[in-house]
Design a binder for these strands. Structure first.
Ligand SMILES: [Zn+2]
Ligand SMILES: [Zn+2]
Ligand SMILES: [Zn+2]
Ligand SMILES: [Zn+2]
Lengths: 133, 133
DNA sequence: ATATTTTTGCAACACTGTCGCAAATATCAT
DNA sequence: ATGATATTTGCGACAGTGTTGCAAAAATAT
């Protein structure tokens, strides 16, 4: 995937900031916060611009915001439109999409209508559990 | 369940604020934020006290914090220690525990260790879907 | 190249959550 | 009940996140 192509596909003006933000997001499979993006971009654009870009990319469905118990929002490229599970490591703090496994269908009680899911498993990631040994 | 008994069980000093906060939480099955508690308690105690109480009740396992994509933390009485699913209604905004259904076991990839889960389903709740008709 | 539209940076803002500290309150031991 | 001790509270200050209005800047369309 290519940052410039995505912007043109979604009819978003191709500005320097947006290209760089998207390139950072495309480069990693770990969810990033605005703050983390800002340090990676070394102040190439303003906080407000990053927030605005994250918001529009989310509404277009290019990235998605991961629900966690923390107050800082984290965003990651959406590789598949399907429901999937997120994993948060308590050791390294990284949050990523687990695309391999599929969340089993849960049957909601009568009257409830599902729109989307936000499944998060908290634990120790592969890398951190290997480093312990 | 009784607020005063809970405090004594967990060896927490029985202060007016704590009793009132717990009573509010026991009274509803909808997750509440600090802000919502404050308005319900009509300023019976300080913001900081509410935050501190929510924190200690969470660490004792009396209540739990629900992970959502929003930045405000919501807390609800923990009725069961088991994994369960939360439901957030996009219409009325309410968040509640779905204790009836059990999240099916997902098999994590090699090397990943699960500690806890945070499953959230977003959609329309029973009450709101009935009101539409 | 110019006109039009969109986006940016800045500053200000509201809000959430945390912390130190002195005063207030609760608990404990007589 | 009284006083000693331990815990909690309210207050104010603070850091951090995310949003917005607005003029300047940049991108797109003509
Ligand atoms: Zn890890
Ligand atoms: Zn994901
Ligand atoms: Zn509803
Ligand atoms: Zn719950």
């Amino acid at each position: 995937m290519n940052a410039i192509k995505i912007l043109s596909d979604y009819k978003m003006s191709r500005t320097n900031g947006r290209v760089k933000i998207l390139e950072e997001l495309l480069m990693t499979d770990v969810a990033l916060s605005e703050r983390e993006l800002q340090t990676r971009l070394e102040g190439i654009c303003d906080r407000a611009t990053i927030y605005r870009t994250l918001k529009s990319l989310t509404s277009k469905g290019v990235i998605h915001k991961i629900a966690t118990e923390s107050t800082v929002a984290k965003f990651v490229i959406k590789k598949t439109p399907d429901d999937h599970i997120h994993f948060k490591c308590t050791d390294c703090g990284r949050i990523q999409c687990l695309t391999g496994i599929v969340p089993n269908n849960v049957k909601l009680p009568e009257g409830y209508i599902k729109k989307e899911t936000n499944f998060l498993i908290i634990g120790i990631c592969k890398e951190c559990s290997e480093n312990v040994q």
